[in-house]
Simulated scan of single mutants.
Amino acid sequence: MLKVFICEDNNTKKEKFEKMIRDIIIIENLDMEIGLSTDRPKQILDYLDNNEVSGLYFLDVDLQRQMNGINLAEKIREYDPRGFIVFVTTHAEMSYLTFMYKVEAMDYIIKDNYSNIQSRIHKCILNANKKFLSKTTELQKNFTIKVDDKIISIEFSNILFFETSQTIHKVILHGENRIIEFYSKMKDIEENLDSRFYRCHRSYLVNKDNIKEIDKNERVVHMINGEDCLVSTRAIKGLIKIMESNYVASLTYKKDSLLI
């Protein structure tokens, strides 16, 4: 998911930007949300320091703080090198600084009139969403689903397991940070995944990379986020064998690396 961040020192304008961006996300049915809206640059950096995110950042240049928007953008690049940065400011004369500090801004919007700002922000959001989906597809495998009129793309590495829903013809995706219910069949899902996923139960399809431990007696898999999924009697031996094989391979790799 692409998260949106706003850093604006004028509270009235900040609230207008929040509403404008939320409305655009709803109208366009985008898999995006506002992660943080603040007048303090440090809050943005603290958030990035504690969370791994891909972001779209709308920054004022003159923040009336020790750190201005250009400096903030430079710091953001250290945490989110592929993020999208947009400056929304009255200071047209400072646009050259974005090149000097090499922050690679997507746009530099001048606060001249509301309709212009709204139109430019709308274009930035659509452009960032398109590039984000393209980049994630290039970088790693993603599982893409349609929920109502919204297209959602989730990296394989962020999926814990799939579970059949009590609602007929529906499946529940358990991700690290979200749960999504959608229409599908386990068989169809399994065909679109890679080898890291294992059919451990008639009703469960688990990502082996996100398993914390396996309780053989209770036939339960404990995931890294504390959630559990079931393992059938038939599948548990195969799962344990695979996990043990991966563990041995990991030890061998580490040993070989040390010898090198």
Rank of each mutant, 00 (worst) to 15 (best):
L2G: 01
V4A: 07
D9S: 12
N11W: 07
K13Q: 15
K13F: 15
R22H: 09
D23P: 00
I24Y: 00
E33D: 11
E33A: 13
E33W: 06
S37P: 03
T38F: 01
P41L: 05
Y47P: 02
L48G: 09
D49N: 14
N51W: 03
S54C: 10
G55P: 11
G55Y: 05
D62K: 13
M67A: 05
E74Y: 15
E78V: 12
G83S: 07
G83F: 03
F87S: 03
F87V: 04
F87D: 02
T90F: 10
T90Q: 12
E93Q: 14
T98I: 08
M100G: 06
V103Q: 07
E104D: 13
A105I: 07
M106V: 14
D107I: 05
K111W: 05
D112I: 10
N113K: 10
Q118E: 15
Q118N: 15
R120C: 02
I121Y: 00
C124V: 04
I125R: 00
I125A: 00
L126E: 06
F132P: 10
L133H: 13
L133N: 15
T136C: 10
T137F: 11
F143Q: 02
T144D: 07
I145G: 01
V147A: 06
K150D: 00
I151M: 09
N158R: 13
F162N: 01
F162Q: 01
S165Q: 05
H174I: 06
E176Y: 10
I180V: 14
F182G: 06
S184N: 15
S184G: 01
K185M: 06
K187P: 01
I189R: 02
E190N: 07
N192K: 15
F197R: 00
Y198M: 02
R202F: 04
R202P: 01
L205V: 02
L205E: 00
I224F: 07
G226N: 02
E227I: 09
D228P: 02
L230N: 09
V231I: 10
V231P: 02
E244Y: 06
S245I: 00
V248I: 15
V248K: 12
T252R: 11
Y253D: 09
L259T: 13
